[in-house]
């Protein structure tokens, strides 16, 4: 009975591995762990190491890490990492849009040039990034259409229904929220009225959920759709460009923050105009930190794409003949 419970415990650790890997190596790994532990219960460190190995195996099979997957899978995975990073950026961008509202009014006309230039660069790069994502979607559309036509619809149906429902809920919720906001003053809209703040945060949660749901649809669809080598090359080029755009967006946002902090610190800190406020802003710090995380993630994705492109161009796989 004890042995059975322990065996179940070890089998549960296998859940971190991909299904195909479990089918092939699962029994052997459980047998090894049983021999290794000699009747002892695996401690936290042991479990964590097995868990980590399982997650690495999943990442490798998905082409996210390592060189085990084919060049096209690695290119696709790298491009998807960049796409997910862009979703993170959209959230950070929404935060920036809120934090930079009417910033020009807080500045003397002579002091507006640099913050306005940085802001304009953020807007331009935001539009460029959105354009790149839309072009990527258009390029992928014929292949995606074929995938849906060939039965992919059944696989994606649940995710599509969830994403569509959330979109409808988000749009429906903004109407009463906007009407409510219209009757409030600036202070009430910015934390002065608890009920409105709660409602606004609930709506923000809906927006985030919608974005996550559509990103999940895009990831699931892209992973399953068969792309030609030419389409994959176009998508990967767009992904690398998008990663560069995200890096530029982060720099421009930081520049805007810096120029505002040196010219109108009270605006950055939401203090009375003319006060000598400390330039730290929790909201902007979170925004730039999220952007920096997105840049790091997209940089990794772009690196995977560039590293895989050579194999994709030559049509070679991932075979290596040396240990390691």
């Amino acid at each position: 009975m004890v042995v059975s419970a322990r065996s179940n415990d070890l089998n549960r650790l296998l859940r971190w591995y991909p299904a195909a890997w479990r089918d092939r190596y699962g029994d052997e790994l459980v047998a090894l762990m049983s021999d290794d532990l000699e009747g002892r219960t695996p401690n936290f460190g042991y479990r964590t190491r097995v868990l980590g190995a399982g997650v690495r195996e999943r990442a490798r099979q998905a082409g996210i890490a390592g060189a085990g997957a084919t060049a096209s899978e690695r290119t696709r995975a790298g491009s998807l990492i960049v796409l997910v990073s862009w979703s993170v950026f959209v959230l950070a961008g929404a935060g920036f849009a809120k934090e930079s509202e009417h910033f020009a009014n807080a500045l003397h006309p002579n002091a507006r040039v640099l913050p306005q230039a940085a802001y304009d660069i953020v807007v331009a790069l935001g539009c460029l990034g959105t354009g790149l994502v839309l072009i990527g979607a258009l390029v992928a559309m014929p292949s995606f259409g074929r995938y849906l036509h060939d039965g992919g619809w059944l696989t994606l149906r649940g995710r599509l229904v969830a994403a569509s429902s959330l979109t409808v809920a988000t749009i429906a919720a903004i109407v009463p929220l906007a009407a409510w906001a219209h009757g409030l003053n600036v202070v009430q809209r910015n934390g002065g009225l608890a009920a409105y703040t709660v409602a606004f945060l609930a709506w923000v949660s809906l927006v985030v959920s919608t974005l996550v749901a559509w990103t999940a649809v895009a990831v699931a669809a892209t992973r399953r759709t068969q792309f030609s080598s030419r389409v994959l090359k176009v998508e990967s080029s767009l992904a690398v460009t998008l990663a560069g755009v995200m890096a530029g967006l982060t720099v421009a946002t930081f520049l805007w923050w810096w120029t505002m902090a040196t010219r109108a610190p009270w605006y950055v800190h939401w203090s009375p105009m003319g006060s000598n406020a400390y330039v730290f802003s929790a909201q902007l710090t979170v925004t730039v930190a999220v952007m920096a995380a997105g840049v790091a993630l997209s940089g990794y994705g772009a690196f995977r794409v560039v590293a895989s492109r050579r194999d994709l161009d030559t049509g070679s796989g991932s075979t290596q003949v040396t240990p390691g």
Binding site: W21, Y25, E28, L29, L32, M33, D36, Y46, R49, V50, G52, A53, G54, R56, E57, G68, P323, G324
Partner: peptide, 12 residues
């Protein structure tokens, strides 16, 4: 560890 061992076995 078992994870490292079987990761390497898979690759090999």
């Amino acid at each position: 560890g078992p994870g490292s061992l079987y990761g390497a076995i898979t690759r090999l």
